[in-house]
Design a protein around this nucleic acid. Structure first.
Lengths: 222, 222
DNA sequence: TGTACATCAGTGAACGCGCGTTCACTGATGTAC
DNA sequence: TGTACATCAGTGAACGCGCGTTCACTGATGTAC
């Protein structure tokens, strides 16, 4: 059995199991058994479980950020002033993500779960890893979004960006559960593409919402 | 030491540690050590770790759903036809949540983080528990939201409801990190109330966004 | 071409550890008669 | 009032288990001379 085969089988299986059960809840024994690979092979090829988790995400995020950068390049050169709208940006990101998941919604769901964990889970190794590897693309996205929403104050934009991120991450992370509920309650089976189609106008409208401005708007909690 | 004292100390400590590290990553030994309580006390008082997790939720959600129901009663009797707007509903929920956190914003953030974990973390006992215990209030909220958004198709409303939930849960769960970033990047210290003030218009606008309707809207991913 | 050595993917078994849980026990308080 | 028993919060130590990791080893392939 060639190396690439064992390594790939471990990564493929780990990806699926991590997405199904989470990281802590997925043991190396579960992965190696399902992958038909020796238990010690994970530590042989990756060094540790942590390193395996990072390798799983690197395999996904590496190509994805590259595609994202390429798509941004293309879109910006398509318009005369290089200025994209919020809608342009959202569709662009969605397309790259969907393309990168290559028909496997489980993959998409797992990646979003990572984003959630990385943000949420205090000072874990995952967050550090993500920040080190992918800040460049992240900040480019932030910058372009800023140019697309000149009417927002920077601090407002900051929060709204993360509100959007929250909707996306939460929805994708719990996609399977929500799909099941939707099917039970409404008899409709929404694919991940359907859900993204619904999500995009929600996000675009939210990010464009009138600024709070005066307290007369009636939003005050007091 | 009276029973209530030991039980309360376990619940208080578990709440903090669960929110900080997640459920699987927090051991009973960590909880009982920090709470200055015997290891066996958790199993004595609660029966199991699962039951402890549920008790932590119940202590927060029990009173909160009661207050939510009461607030809904009050608001609905205030207006002639009992019909609230989306903005009314959002402010109402926000107020109850803020009130329930009783001046401890950390607690609010903690409960939202726990809720996020519960939703996201696989097929666990937690979601089943939450659904069994709090469906009534949940469905009342859904129903009122439905009446406030008659222009939406049920399935659209379902997804947008969870998009909102995602923004809320994610933002509150990562509140501390985001506050730190905001302070570093923009020199502004936003309280949790400030953040909620920013969140509400975002959500209201998102949930009212034009429905996808025709593909001519340009949202299609194909 | 043959021999000796190096490299490396892969293996089976064991290791130590932290986990949730269990159990026999203590000691204080309440209750029946 | 005194005695016997019941109840119950709390305890210390141990249990079995699954975990990630380690290690000595195999066997195939490549390389130097």
């Amino acid at each position: 059995m060639a190396q690439s085969d064992t390594v790939t089988r471990i990564l493929d299986t780990a990806e699926v199991l991590f997405a199904e059960k989470g990281f802590a809840e997925t043991s190396l024994r579960a992965i190696t058994t399902k992958a038909n690979v020796n238990l010690a092979a994970v530590n042989y090829h990756f060094g540790s479980k942590k390193a395996l988790i990072q390798a799983v995400f690197a395999r996904f995020l590496g190509p994805m950020t590259q595609n994202l950068e390429a798509a941004l390049d293309r879109s910006q050169s398509d318009v005369s002033n290089g200025q994209l709208t919020v809608e342009d940006i959202l569709i662009l990101v969605a397309r790259v993500m969907v393309a990168e998941s290559k028909g496997s919604p489980a993959r998409l769901s797992m990646m979003m779960r990572l984003a959630g964990l990385a943000y949420t889970q205090g000072q874990g190794h995952l967050r550090k890893f993500l920040q080190n590897q992918y800040t460049q693309t992240f900040y480019r996205l932030m910058k372009i979004t800023a140019e697309a929403t000149p009417e927002l104050k920077p601090i407002e934009r900051f929060w709204r960006f993360h509100f959007m991120l929250g909707s996306l991450v939460f929805t994708m992370a719990s996609l399977e559960s929500l799909q099941a509920i939707a099917e039970h309650d409404f008899g409709v089976r929404n694919s991940e593409l359907d859900v993204i189609d619904q999500l995009l106008p929600f996000l675009a409208s939210g990010v464009r919402a009138g600024s709070l401005g005066s307290p007369s708007k009636g939003w005050s909690l007091d």
